[in-house]
């Protein structure tokens, strides 16, 4: 007999205390179940309608993200390609946002896909967060090169990631199947920043 209650487990379920071991040099934590939608919008005539639904303008410059607060709460829109965006919103909003965005696009050429289960989210902050990422990521994350609002798709320790530079933290979006590998790699790469036992 199978249980008929589906319990949602995040890819890094059970890693919370291990991820916290790098504090205070690097504060590493998973932010599970972020609503994520891929938005393809080659028809820019609907960009204004989409912006109204989200409460934030679509980012026009490559490798940036835009954030704002709209009818569906705080939303971040990441540039993934010339006509491709990733919408990040609070957990549980994917269905609502999906239908709202589809209505905004209407008959125009475009697509909205719920990809919330595709990736999980890791946040890194603290004095050594950038050093830790630099161990496996070739993109220069110095504020003079990657200021707040940068969103790059690149490789971190050979795993494909989307990296967002927020004001006080880095956000790493990683595929669910790579999440435990990347968490283990981050813990290993961060060994030198651990507090020495006294």
């Amino acid at each position: 007999m199978t249980a008929d209650i589906a319990t949602r487990r995040s890819p890094l379920d059970g890693w919370t205390s291990r991820l916290a071991e790098l504090a205070p040099a690097v504060r590493l934590a998973e932010r599970p179940f972020v609503s994520q939608l891929t938005l393809r919008l080659p028809d820019s005539s609907r960009a204004a309608a989409v912006s109204t639904v989200l409460g934030v303008e679509l980012p026009s410059a490559p490798c940036t993200f835009a954030k704002g607060t709209g009818p569906h709460g705080p939303v971040e829109v990441c540039w993934l390609g010339p006509d491709e965006y990733l919408v990040l919103a609070q957990p549980g909003l994917q269905r609502t946002l999906e239908s709202a965005l589809r209505a905004a696009i209407g008959d125009a050429h475009g697509a909205v896909v719920d990809v919330s289960a595709q990736r999980t989210t890791l946040t890194l902050s603290g004095p050594n967060a950038r050093d830790l990422l630099a161990h496996g990521c070739a993109v220069d994350l110095h504020p003079s090169v990657s200021p707040t609002g940068t969103c790059v798709q690149t490789l971190l320790a050979q795993a494909g990631i989307i990296l967002l530079v927020r004001e006080a933290e880095f956000v790493v979006l990683v595929r669910a199947s790579f999440a435990t590998y990347l968490a283990a790699w981050l813990l290993d790469a961060g060994t030198e920043y651990r507090e020495q036992p006294t």
């Binding site: 993109v139 790059v152 690149t154």
Partner: peptide, 17 residues
């Protein structure tokens, strides 16, 4: 490693291509 300048993303490492 060789850097390849993507017309959209700018210079990135060759392994990304």
């Amino acid at each position: 490693m060789q850097l390849i300048p993507c017309p959209w993303c700018g210079p990135r490492e060759e392994v990304e291509f």
